[in-house]
Amino acid sequence: MKLKIAIACLLFFGTISAQHGANQVYQTQNSNNYRENSNYQNQNKINFGPDGASYKINVLNNVRPDSYIITLGLNQESLSVKECNSKINSRLEGFKNSLKKLGIKEEEMFVDFISQTKIYDYKSSSTTNQVNLTQIDKGFEIKKNIIVKLKNTKLYDKIIEEASEFEIHNIVKVDYIKANTEKIYEEMFAEANVILESKIKLHQKFGKKEYEEVPQVAVNFYSIQPGKQYKNYTAFESANIEYESNQYNGRKHLVRQEERKNTTYYYDGMTPDFFDKVLNPDSPEVNMQFIMELSISYKTKIPKETPKKEEEKVYHFITPNGDLRVLNLK
């Protein structure tokens, strides 16, 4: 009876969460993140039979990072390599000096040389019958990235503003960094062990069996960067217009200009529904997500058979006098 009530509650809460779709309902449901989440539906389960028992446990942990690595890209064009490099370095030095005023140290910045390429353009000349285009050398372009370590996210907007002062507008990516992952591993493994003990007790209600003391254990532990978990959608409703184009009967062509539709991007991490345990589930921050997949298999103990005693063999012989006697071979 208790099992039926629990299932009813789960279905009830699932219905409640489905009532609040928001504009994300405009998104198609075939994204990679959705497929990844659906893969967990068959993982947190118990299998047991005459040969043994296996348990699969999944734990999700939302962890605030210790620091962020921001990569910003810039480029510079000029007629010569020397002039090009001098101009881009001047912009970089100015930007680095402005970051130092915000409290960011020199060792927390790194300039990565990306590429140096030639630039070509076309020069045109015309005659009575044709236009000639000739490709010409236009100079050089150098691309570099500046990578910045940031501990205080409140400085992020200020960094972007300072970057724009030096015509640095390309924010390439943001990586989230967590230093002590060993502590996270231990915490999640402890939670998984508690869940395992609970599942074993549930299993024993269906018939207790003796298993080998040392099980086979497999642990898969990894993290997912938030940058890989953003989705997007474009939400709008538009009128339907039907038109015909026939230039031979004098009808006018219809030219339709569409308004720009904004695309919304939002963070959509791993769905907690498919995990046995979620740590820090109610944090509104965009954090790193650590996942632990634990598989444990126990083999059924095979009772040891008591070795049978070898039966003593008795030998008889007849003496020359005709007497029957027992032969002792000890």
Rank of each mutant, 00 (worst) to 15 (best):
K144C: 11
N246E: 13
I160T: 14
Y230W: 08
N145L: 12
A235V: 09
T127I: 01
M188H: 01
V219R: 06
F140P: 10
E167T: 10
I160H: 08
I195L: 12
E165F: 08
S198R: 09
Y243N: 07
E237G: 11
E244Y: 02
L196G: 01
K178F: 11
A192G: 07
K143P: 00
I171E: 11
K178G: 03
Y233S: 07
E197N: 11
K143F: 07
L196R: 04
N132A: 01
G207V: 02
E197I: 04
F166Q: 09
I177F: 15
Y230A: 06
L196K: 04
N152D: 15
A218N: 13
K183C: 00
E162A: 12
N145Q: 13
A192C: 00
N193Y: 10
K208M: 06
E165V: 08
Q130Y: 01
D175M: 05
Q135N: 03
K201Y: 10
Y156A: 03
Q135P: 01
I171W: 07
N246K: 09
E191W: 03
Y248I: 15
F166H: 12
K228A: 14
Y222P: 07
A179E: 11
T134H: 03
N129V: 01
F221C: 03
E191P: 01
Y248S: 15
I160W: 07
L133G: 00
D175G: 05
K149Y: 02
Y248H: 11
K138I: 06
E210K: 14
G139H: 06
I200D: 02
V219N: 13
N145H: 12
P226Q: 05
A218R: 07
S198Q: 13
D137H: 14
Q135L: 02
I146Y: 06
I224L: 07
K205P: 00
Q225F: 01
Y156C: 08
K228T: 12
F221T: 02
S164R: 10
I147D: 08
K183I: 05
A239I: 05
T181F: 06
Y230E: 02
N152A: 11
K149M: 07
A235G: 06
S223Y: 09
A235M: 09
K178N: 04
S223N: 06
Y243K: 06
K231F: 04
G227E: 08
I168V: 08
N129S: 03
N240Q: 12
Y156T: 07
G139M: 11
V174P: 02
S245V: 12
K228R: 09
F206S: 09
N180L: 03
Y230M: 04
L202T: 11
Y185S: 04
I171T: 09
Y156K: 11
Y222A: 05
N170I: 05
I146T: 08
N240R: 13
E141C: 14
F166G: 02
H169R: 14
K208L: 05
S223M: 04
E141R: 15
I159S: 10
I224A: 09
K228E: 14
S223R: 04
L133M: 05
G207K: 04
S223P: 02
Q135D: 04
N249H: 13
T134C: 00
E162K: 12
E167C: 03
N132M: 00
S245I: 14
Y185D: 01
L150Q: 10
E187R: 03
E141H: 07
K199I: 03
G227S: 08
A218V: 10
N145A: 13
F206W: 04
Y211V: 07
